[in-house]
Amino acid sequence: MRIRATVAAVTGALALSALAVPAAQAGEAPTYRESAAAAFAAAHGTSDKAAFSTAAAAEMDITFSNFKIAQAVKVGTTNKVSTTVTYTLTHGADVDIHSEDFATGPYIYRGAFDTPDNMLFGDYAATCTDTSATTATCKGNIDVYPADGELLNAHAGTWKGGALALDYVTGDYADQGGLGTTLVQRYSKLTVNASPEPVVKGKTITVTGKLSRANWETFKYAGYTNQPVKLQFRKKDSSTYTTLKTITSNSTGELKTTVTASVDGYFRWSFAGTTTTPAVNATGDFVDVQ
């Protein structure tokens, strides 16, 4: 059973949403994602402490470092998105990280570490390779399911990285945030159309297009408004685009301008991106100038 894990601030304390992290079905063991969410909840003083004792937190002698994640995680409206994370796990000599009862994994969170607005885990625990008797290099995923409503549009932007470890049997755990950052972005699209085709040299070419991005609440793409977008051109036998002008997308994300036909070549729109939305280039549209 796959579930999503979201932690929300409720009356000043964290609580795992029953919708976000449902209990395992009768007779079914909790998934790693469920267990990781419960461990985080216990570490941060929430009411979900049945399986994880706060008194046990100090007993698991583990710290995390060298957290590495992609600069940006680009999320659309329907498809699952996975991004790989690596980190170093340092543990006490008495901690057996290869026990079948032990698990560790990365996560990312938005907002303050103690009261995050949202969190994203991986479906499965990370795999770790020993580099010494007390250190290991670990590799795991962050798995995002936008179609399941894991994200709100307001959640786009900077997220922080963390990692945790837990013992399924004893309830011991370790948890550490502020290990790194990444951008969780609303996937962008950009179209272009240059016409007429063909066109007589010296005549006017009208170039249109649309800049849009994922809406995580409607699960559709919507126009990205009031954004500067460059109109670029490259000659037929060239591989380099040159910027002709910059246009601002209108209230529906539409773009429109005119240029004078001179030589055969390709027109495209180019968007530099923002913290919430990745950069994107339209596929060039060829115009034959006669």
Rank of each mutant, 00 (worst) to 15 (best):
P30T: 09
S262H: 02
A55V: 13
G122P: 11
T257G: 08
A72S: 15
A43D: 14
A36W: 01
G149L: 01
F121V: 01
D172M: 13
Y173W: 08
T181A: 13
A8T: 14
Y32P: 13
P106R: 01
S195M: 03
K68L: 07
E150N: 10
T131R: 07
G149C: 11
V169L: 15
G157Y: 02
A133G: 06
A37Y: 02
N226W: 07
W159R: 09
Q232M: 12
V192K: 04
T206G: 03
P116Y: 01
G149I: 00
K68D: 10
G180Y: 00
E217I: 00
A37R: 10
I62N: 03
P22C: 06
D48K: 11
A261P: 08
H91P: 11
T83C: 11
N153E: 12
T54I: 15
S65F: 03
I108P: 13
G284K: 06
G177E: 09
E217K: 01
G265K: 05
A222V: 06
N118L: 01
K80V: 13
T84E: 14
P116I: 01
A163F: 10
S251G: 04
G105F: 00
A112L: 10
G111N: 12
K139Y: 01
A50C: 01
T276R: 05
A133K: 12
T104W: 07
T191K: 08
V85N: 14
L255A: 05
A55T: 15
D130Q: 12
C138F: 04
Q25I: 05
L183K: 12
A26K: 08
A174D: 12
G209V: 04
A5I: 03
K210V: 08
